[in-house]
Design a protein around this nucleic acid. Structure first.
Length: 334
DNA sequence: GGCCCTCTTTAGGGCCTT
């Protein structure tokens, strides 16, 4: 089976001690969440979501840098871990994992959205992941991802994942996100081809048996998702068949139109509208994920959307990204 | 690039993502 996640050179995992639906009211009212961090390498559950005692017992040598910031009142306290890489990425294991992904795609996933609308119990099989990427620019063809952050809204241990990515080129838009060429060229920062199997493994560890993964991002359809898909394909990986995507931008437009709030629907503007404090620097992946998590939950609450409605009416397949007509046709059938 | 709005629909401009 796949090697433990300690092969991740510089990934961070946080734990959100808050359940998505159950903790919603506390989450949205307080504007903050409590959590405790756990190193990615010490995953409680193995690749098949099975408890992995051996991995939990393994000692880790880490260089820890305490984040000096507004710890008490911030959405989350930050701690950076740099692992000593005891397990190098094994090419044969990566190839084996690619094979697993291929097998996964042979499973016939019919239209999950229709199924969930018809049977709301299936919504329990959905894993919601809020994510954000920072890139070297806007072009999915010419630019590269330099940072990615995820948060599983189901909460629990290891509910977040964050890492810088070495794009193999200079970063010319440091003034936007504060990520410099020097930062991504550190030896501990993985290249995308090395990160993808780790990322896919992490996502698999979060999904439920026989379940589906719904990725959520702001402007997902025209930016984050095409970028993610482009990077996966560039590294010869396919998109798992059980992945769906939700773009919060249309939700924001709908909420602003319905209840008033101006024409600005950018993420920071939504945060200000809902009086959600920004945690950390804007345009850093995890800060934007934390903000979007609260914005998404507030939008869902305001628009009175159930999980089955969110997935059934507002999600798209990767094949529908960049094809609005297809999505509209599908929506009309639901 | 795609979506939305309007001074529109045989179009154009602004917004949103880094």
């Amino acid at each position: 089976m796949f090697s433990p996640l300690i092969i991740s050179p510089q990934c961070r995992v946080y734990t959100l001690a808050c359940s998505w639906w159950q903790g919603f009211h506390h989450f949205s009212k307080s504007g903050r969440v409590s959590f405790r961090f756990k190193v990615l390498a010490s995953h409680k559950y193995g690749p098949d979501s099975r408890y992995n005692r051996a991995e939990n017992r393994r000692s880790r040598s880490t260089l820890t840098t305490q984040y000096k910031g507004k710890a008490k009142d911030s959405l989350c306290t930050k701690t950076t871990f740099r692992h000593e890489i005891s397990d190098q990425i094994n090419i044969s294991k990566v190839d084996a994992y690619k094979s697993e992904i291929t097998e996964l795609e042979t499973i016939e996933y019919h239209d999950i959205r229709q199924k969930i609308v018809e049977n709301k119990e299936l919504a329990k099989l959905v894993t919601l992941i809020v994510f954000d990427i920072e890139t070297t620019g806007f072009s999915r063809e010419n630019d590269r991802i330099i940072e990615i952050a995820l948060r599983d809204l189901g909460g629990g241990e290891n509910s977040t994942f964050q890492t810088l990515v070495n794009p193999g080129r200079d970063v010319l838009n440091e003034h936007i996100h504060g990520i410099s060429t020097q930062m991504v060229r550190r030896a501990a920062v993985p290249r995308m081809e090395d990160l993808i199997p780790i990322l896919l493994q992490y996502v698999r560890s979060r999904q439920k048996a026989g379940g589906y993964v719904v990725w959520i991002a702001h402007n997902a359809r025209t930016f984050d998702v095409p970028f993610l898909i482009s990077e996966l394909r560039r590294c010869s990986y396919s998109i798992p068949s059980n992945w769906l995507f939700i773009d919060t931008l249309p939700l924001a437009r709908e909420a602003m139109k319905k209840y008033g709030g101006g024409s600005k629907v950018k993420l920071q503007a939504m945060g200000e509208h809902y009086k959600i404090p920004l945690d950390g620097s804007a345009h850093r992946a995890m800060s934007d994920v934390n903000l979007l998590t609260l914005v998404f939950q507030t939008l869902s609450f305001e628009l009175k959307l159930t999980l089955s409605e969110l997935v059934g009416q507002h999600s798209v397949w990767f094949s529908e990204v960049g094809n609005s007509k297809k999505k509209k046709n599908n929506s009309s059938k639901l």
